[in-house]
């Protein structure tokens, strides 16, 4: 026999679930939409850097281009090569897209909100190992690239997949190590706590070295020019996604752009004070910071040529990792004093 108290608890639980679902839906929608329009932004901005127009046929300023592209990809034939390892081939793109989308679950996009007497934290889940959760997912994302390349059973794909795996695990080290000082300063792995710790000043002011290491490693992690060896067009076709078509290719693409947003959000949360900012609402500030980071990435793409493989490895292992280790030691010494 349920008592009144129990009924109230059940009700609260039910409302909690509803709020969570609404939050999930909104975040997912924003991420997907922003991914589509990041593609547009990239094409437009890159075109400007190269003195051309970029997409300008679908809608005003080509604003409908992402939607046209999505429809095209959805309706295209989804073909699987005969010699491919079917199941792994079909699942690999999903691994890339899912791991990128899930990473956003720990990014806070505002202070806790009070709505109808209920406290709603503006983050999907405040894990106290949030930062490690992001690393766990990003290390699982490697499988999408490596297995996608292997399962296609094509030389180009395999080479792309192997390059991708080697590059991603190399730069994951410097990515992780560069953030140790941030965790030391904030005293927590939780991204919510890290934003709270930046109440007085953003961490970029005290950790410029970590910022530079992180942003370089982040670009390498998302396999963008100048680190796009896994999909180097002139040598590998399209690398690990050469054999993919239709929406499965779209998922790789989506994964890349969602990854870009997640890295932008991480830069914002870890170095730029997260959702903090004057006048504008917190959510908008986070968005502005994400787009700023994305613009820097696009600008870099328009400026730098691709690294050679040995240069890539030397930069990761001989420059970034030692610099990150040194940075940890210096930060530790300063904190102890």
């Amino acid at each position: 026999m349920p008592t009144a108290h129990q009924n109230k608890n059940d009700m609260e639980w039910f409302i909690g679930i509803i709020f969570l679902l609404v939050k999930l839906g909104l975040v997912l929608l924003t991420l997907l939409l922003l991914a589509a329009y990041l593609v547009w932004l990239e094409r437009k901005f890159l075109a400007r850097l190269q003195i051309r127009y970029g997409p300008n046929r679908a809608g005003k300023f080509g604003l409908l281009q992402p939607i046209a592209d999505t429809i095209k990809m959805m309706t295209k034939e989804d073909s699987v090569p005969e010699a491919a390892d079917r199941i792994i081939f079909l699942l690999a793109p999903a691994v890339v897209a899912t791991s990128a989308l899930l990473m956003f679950a720990v990014v806070p996009f505002g202070n806790a909100l009070t709505l109808w007497g209920k406290n709603i934290p503006l983050v999907i889940t405040d894990l106290f190992v949030g930062l490690l959760f992001v690393f766990a997912l990003s290390s699982l994302g490697v499988y999408g690239v490596a297995l996608g390349g292997w399962a296609s059973n094509s030389k180009y794909s395999l080479l792309g997949g192997i390059r991708g795996a080697a590059q991603m695990i190399s730069y994951e080290l410097s990515l992780g190590l560069s953030l140790v000082p941030i965790v030391m300063l904030a005293g927590s792995f939780s991204l919510v706590d890290i934003v709270q710790a930046q109440e007085k000043y953003p961490f970029i002011l005290v950790q410029p070295v970590a910022f530079v290491i992180f942003i370089i490693s982040a670009m390498a992690e998302s396999k963008r020019i100048p680190f796009d060896l896994p999909e180097a067009e002139n040598e590998l076709g399209a690398g690990y996604h050469t054999e993919y078509s239709g929406m499965r290719f779209g998922l790789f693409f989506l994964g890349e752009y969602v990854h870009m947003q997640v890295l932008g959000a991480l830069v914002a949360v870890l170095f730029l004070g997260g959702w903090r900012g004057p006048v504008l609402p917190p959510f908008l500030w986070l968005l502005i910071k994400i787009i700023m980071v994305a613009l820097i990435m696009i600008w870099t793409r328009g400026t730098l040529p691709r690294l050679r493989y040995d240069q890539l490895m030397a930069l990761g292992w001989k420059v970034l990792i030692p610099a990150a280790l040194l940075n940890i030691m210096v930060t530790g010494a300063v904190l102890l004093l």
Binding site: F133, F135, A136, S139, L140, V142, W150, I162, I169
Partner: peptide
């Protein structure tokens, strides 16, 4: 749990796969 995923599922198995 997170360490298990990062180290075993994420790092060691990638090397195996490699």
């Amino acid at each position: 749990a997170v360490l298990e995923v990062i180290i075993y599922a994420g790092a060691i198995m990638v090397l195996f796969l490699f």
